[in-house]
Simulated assay, not measured.
Amino acid sequence: MSERIDKPSTTLPPGQWSFTRWKTIGQLEALEVQHPLFEAALTLQGAHLVHFSQTNESNWLWLSDLARFQPGRAIRGGIPVCWPWFGDPSRNPPAIRANIKTPSAHGFARTALWQLEDVNESAHEVEISLSLNTSDDFSELWQGHALALITFNFSLRGCQIALTTTNLSKTPMALSQALHTYLPTPDIAGTRLLGLGNSQYIDTLKDWSYATQDGPVYFEGETDRIYESGDRLVATTPERRTKLTGFGSDSTVVWNPGPEKSKRLSDFPDTGWQNMLCVETANAAGDYRVLNTGQSHTLGVLIERG
């Protein structure tokens, strides 16, 4: 990271902050939090959290060693914001597909430049809010007008993220979305995900067929499933337990690219699949949401140590 850079006066003056500083990561503007109790870093592009940890701990999030911080390029790792659609547009419900004008997956929020709204600090926590107003800026990609407001709350307890979407258009708006959380593990073979037992899921690797989860989720190769559950989850690795409590969500995406797909992914080590898993708090598949004019919906997740 480079030295602090000055920002326009439309944002809070950095001198009023005790723990938060402007930084650049690669070619991207970012905010870095160095609190006595915890540390965090997020980029304005994508409202993308790339680091959170308690002080003197390793990153709670997995970030690819090959991640590139460049304008217009999605960051591999951390917590990308998939919005206002999740996944392949062609696999979304018709009400969502009708507004999408591009074949690109996961929407445009993760490469869009978000606006800083507020930074609030105390002796116990730091809260940062960013916004994205779609208006006409994304009319070539999407037919809709919405305001996305994302708030990050960092504390000794953990990290909470809340993404609120408000429909500013004159007609109902359908959306799917996800907070695409990458978690680290020293060994994917010794990792399991608890809390999805008996849940139905769509296995996208088996022609989107339905199955029922029997016990914990284990990772034995490529995994790409959409679970019909928004219950609290616990990811257990040989090093740690991480609790994920979602809200505004009745679906969870579980993903690991496995050995073959890892070799085809951009900015991803060939063996990276052995050291990560994704547990995504979502509104996906049948859990997509429809907002009437002026209506809002909040999707969020609280990440804590188990």
Rank of each mutant, 00 (worst) to 15 (best):
P103M: 02
F69A: 00
P8E: 00
Q295D: 06
K170S: 13
I75G: 09
A30H: 02
S9K: 11
N167M: 08
D65R: 14
Y210M: 14
P94W: 02
G26C: 08
W273D: 07
S18P: 00
P80K: 00
P8V: 03
Q54M: 04
T164A: 10
G144N: 10
S296Y: 09
E117T: 02
T164Q: 15
T11S: 13
E228K: 04
S139L: 14
Y201T: 07
K206V: 06
L175N: 05
K243S: 15
L302N: 11
L141V: 08
G87A: 04
P172N: 03
K170R: 03
L175Y: 15
H297N: 05
I202S: 05
D224N: 14
L291I: 08
S249C: 15
L194S: 09
Y201D: 04
W83M: 12
S129D: 10
G286W: 06
G78K: 02
A105V: 14
D136I: 12
G272Q: 05
V33N: 04
D6R: 06
L193W: 07
F52K: 06
S169A: 12
D187E: 12
H180R: 08
E304F: 01
S229E: 01
W114M: 09
Q295K: 08
L299P: 01
R157V: 05
Q70M: 14
T55G: 02
E32L: 04
A105K: 13
L193S: 04
P93V: 14
T245W: 01
L194M: 13
T223Y: 14
G26L: 13
V217W: 08
T271K: 12
R192A: 11
A123E: 15
S262T: 10
A285V: 04
T171W: 05
P14E: 03
A112F: 04
L147H: 01
G87P: 11
R97Q: 15
T43N: 11
R110M: 07
S296M: 08
H180L: 11
I150C: 08
G46C: 08
L163D: 00
E140R: 05
P8N: 03
L66A: 10
Q274G: 00
V254D: 08
Q34V: 03
D287E: 12
E39H: 06
L147F: 09
Q115R: 15
L42K: 00
L130N: 03
L28E: 08
I188Y: 02
S9Y: 07
H124L: 14
S53K: 01
L63R: 05
P216C: 10
R21P: 00
A105I: 13
Q27N: 14
T43I: 11
P93D: 10
D231F: 01
E304G: 02
W114T: 04
S199I: 09
T164V: 05
L302F: 13
N99C: 10
I5V: 15
A282G: 05
G306M: 04
G15H: 03
P71F: 03
L265N: 06
R21Y: 07
F19Q: 00
N198V: 10
S58F: 07
C82Y: 05
T102K: 01
F268I: 08
L12F: 07
I75P: 09
I161V: 14
N56A: 14
G195P: 07
F86W: 03
F154K: 00
F247N: 05
R305G: 13
K261A: 05
T204A: 13
R110K: 05
